[in-house]
Design a binder for these strands. Structure first.
Length: 451
RNA sequence: CGGGGCGUGGCGCAGUCUGGUAGCGCACCUGUUUUGGGAACAGGGGGUCGGAGGUUCGAAUCCUCUCGCCCCGACCA
């Protein structure tokens, strides 16, 4: 993309409404514009990151054997009356009436809808196990939205639902989700720690929240510092391997890590003092096993091998996709702006032409641009007739992890400059070598393909 | 919802107390000179002051109502 043809309305000054860094930077980098309290338009740069996260989630869910679909944002109140949650959910649920005076709602979650789909079409144990998920906009009418997309009213969320014949099968689904979530967050350059959590309005027995440590997090968390040393890394996962998934789950949840809701001071005190940590965290996902809580009242049963109708065991799992954009920025920025992890960056690198309009510099940039595109990378070329300082400041603000600087001085020696946004380290090298380096860097960060 | 605050050009703000018909910085447009970390000078475009009603010869400024947004709290992915 050439910046002169793009739409990137960056702000030089901080909008007064933004209090926390991710909100400020998203506004300044031209990623979002507020449409109403807690509701945002996603401008091109923000949309690109959002789509990338969405696609990573899709890839990892499909890898785990889960099946993508799409349910509507608006739902009928009838299903919610059936599950008993129409009254239980409270004013957070946005209720709407249509022209025929029917009670509707903008879905805050989808257990009812999915259960209805399931009971209509699934009747046999032979159809199990089944895990369906979708990525869709949700609405929760927060009393007080704040922190930009981190705590908006409208938010994009992946939510999935597993249906299993037995509790053991459902617990494997739980573990499978835990592992797939770990992979998902690691690909996004985040460390999200699974913590024993409270089940809240969803209800259920087993539940873990995934928290990204950040000073601006809304939850207080307590953990054994050793948990932050555990990584999934490159290990091979077989999602059908019950023992392996359980082993990974146990590895990641054995050490003490809890939010304030479930914090147990006595247990916490047993951790060696040097490893006891309390901090703040941003919740970016949660998984539940809730047994037959919905299947029973809503009649989601299958016929077992013995001919008996049995309610299915279910779980649900969510990832706050739009919130993750903010969470990543909270975890990765400096005073100049955002620093995107390679796995989620909207463009792989920036090209800064220091002498726009000069034939040699223009031609070198065009060649470089072409070579990067040919190599399968997406560069953002700042071809505006701006001064160097302005171009650098924009690049720093929007946070592309790599920048290639092209100027007459370097070109005289046949080199360009490759700079890491994270470290600030620069290296002078021939253009072809810079392209080769970037190809190498991104070889370990394949672009997500989407559904 | 309780408490506090704010709505003046795209962004940040002054002007409101003490009514006289809108101003500054950034951004934007034109020109000249500049050009390796947010240039300088000159010229220029854009707002009727969140909305409605009222008081007044006259309202961004005063009064009433209303809408929106932000902060603290309870609530929450």
């Amino acid at each position: 993309m050439r910046l002169s043809r793009y739409f990137l309305p960056v702000l030089r000054e901080n909008p007064s409404e933004a209090q926390i860094v991710s909100h400020r930077l998203m506004l300044r980098a031209g990623m979002i514009k507020q449409a109403a309290a807690g509701i945002y338009s996603w401008l091109p740069l923000g949309f690109k990151v959002l789509r990338k996260l969405e696609n990573i989630v899709h890839e990892e869910q499909i890898r785990a054997g889960h099946i993508p679909m799409l349910m509507p944002t608006l739902q009928s109140a009838d299903l919610w009356r059936e599950s008993g949650r129409y009254d239980a959910y409270g004013p957070e649920m946005l209720r709407i009436r249509d022209r025929h005076d029917r009670d509707m709602l903008y879905g805050p979650t989808n257990e009812e809808l999915i259960t209805d789909i399931f009971r209509t079409h699934v009747g046999s144990y032979k159809d199990l196990p089944l895990t369906l998920y979708h990525i869709q906009w949700k609405f929760r009418d927060e009393i007080r939205p704040r922190f930009g997309v981190m705590r908006g009213r409208e938010f994009l969320m992946k939510d999935g639902y597993n249906f299993d014949l037995t509790k053991e099968d459902a617990l494997h689904a739980y573990n499978r989700h835990l592992v797939s979530y770990l992979r998902t967050y690691e690909r996004m350059g985040l460390q999200a720690i699974p913590m024993r959590a409270d089940s809240g309005p969803i209800g259920g027995d087993d539940t873990h929240e995934f928290l990204v440590l950040a000073e601006t997090g809304e939850s207080e968390v307590f953990y054994d510092s050793a948990v932050t040393d555990i990584r999934l890394g490159e290990r091979e996962i077989d999602y059908d391997d019950v023992a392996q998934c359980r082993a990974v789950m146990e590895e990641f949840t054995a050490l003490y890590a809890r939010t304030d809701e479930t914090h147990d001071a006595a247990l916490f005190a047993k951790i060696p003092e040097a490893r006891r940590r309390s901090a703040r965290g941003i919740e970016v996902g949660q998984i539940f096993y809730f047994g037959t809580k919905y299947s029973e009242p809503m009649g989601a049963t299958v016929q077992g091998p013995d001919g008996a109708q049995v309610p299915v065991h279910m779980g649900s799992h969510g990832i706050g996709v739009s919130r993750l954009v903010g969470a990543i920025i909270e975890a990765s920025h400096d005073e100049k702006g955002i620093i995107w992890p390679e796995g989620v960056t909207p463009y792989h690198c920036g090209i800064v032409n220091l002498k726009q309009g000069e034939d040699a510099a223009d031609a070198a940039c065009e060649r470089l641009y072409g070579a990067l595109v040919a190599a399968g990378l997406e560069p953002l070329y700042d071809d505006r007739d701006e001064r160097a300082g302005g171009k650098f400041a924009t690049m720093d603000l929007i946070g592309l992890p790599w920048r290639i600087t092209v100027g007459p001085r370097g070109l005289k020696n046949g080199v360009v400059e490759l700079t890491s946004r994270r470290t600030g380290q620069s290296e002078e090298l021939p253009p072809e070598a810079a392209v080769a380096r970037l190809v190498e860097i991104y070889a370990g960060q394949p672009d997500p393909a989407g559904v």
